[in-house]
Design a protein around this nucleic acid. Structure first.
Length: 225
DNA sequence: CGCTTTTGACCCGCGC
DNA sequence: GCGCGGGTCAAAAGCG
């Protein structure tokens, strides 16, 4: 069994630097079927003030019964569902710009009386970073191997011990020429069995597996936009 | 020999 | 201005 298929749990969260600084939100892009690496898929809409804060977190377990979610979260879930449906209709590749997604979700949330509105308004005061960053997507996976086989070829270009973590963070770049996608890999301090992988940027090419084998890997294509 | 990994140095943004 | 910390560079080492 490959390292990929051994992955048992994935939690996804997405960041949109520009919009989050304005709206105080982190949202997922519309192609929800982003995770071929595990059996469990999830989507998170977060307050950017604190990624781990429970108050503003909305977790949408797409593969599970959404009725188990708290009532205040259902509206968000349904609008995310709307967004997904619209996305599928509009684009065969199921890709939409980050800004558009954020605007959509942000406007819905800010029009309500949810505590998220407060969080979003507060975030307007947050300084906007000058440096333009690529959209980022991170997920955690229960795996004994650090680098999951995602179909792309990566070259390690750095490793750093980050403060308050027991395990070093590794930095990888896609080996494909003209592709500027990067990823960071680190283990969760509280649970070393969990690997946190953060992708930054979009690949401008197909996974290298496509070139090496004739086996279909369409799910991986979907995953990395 | 060419590609990848390692690792210390350096850069840069941010908070004080 | 200074120090801290995260991210990147690049030379050297490792490996097939």
């Amino acid at each position: 069994m490959s390292s990929t298929s051994q992955a048992m749990l994935n939690q996804g969260l997405f960041e949109d630097q520009e919009m989050s600084s304005q709206m105080g939100l982190y949202t997922s892009p519309p192609n929800w079927n982003f995770s071929p690496l595990g059996y469990h898929q999830s989507l998170r809409l977060l307050s950017s003030s604190n990624l781990s804060s429970t108050g503003a977190d909305i977790t949408c377990h797409l593969s599970e019964n959404l009725s188990s979610m708290a009532p205040k979260h259902r509206d968000i879930t349904s609008l995310l569902g709307e967004l997904e449906a619209a996305s599928v209709q509009r684009s065969s590749t199921n890709i939409r710009p980050w800004g558009e997604v954020n605007q959509y979700v942000g406007s819905k949330i800010c029009s309500g009386d949810d505590h998220l509105t407060v969080a979003a308004m507060k975030m307007k005061k947050v300084k906007v970073r000058r440096k333009v960053r690529e959209p980022r997507f991170c997920f955690k996976t229960l795996s004994d191997v650090d680098v999951l086989d995602d179909g792309y070829k990566w070259r390690k270009y750095g490793q750093k011990v980050v403060k308050n973590t027991l395990h070093p963070r590794s930095y990888y770049r896609c080996t494909q020429e003209n592709c500027r996608v990067k990823k960071r890999v680190e283990r969760l301090a509280e649970d070393p069995r969990m690997v946190i992988t953060t992708y930054e940027g979009r690949h401008v090419h197909s996974p290298s597996h496509d070139l090496e084998t004739s086996e279909s890997s369409s799910h991986i294509n979907n995953f990395f936009w």
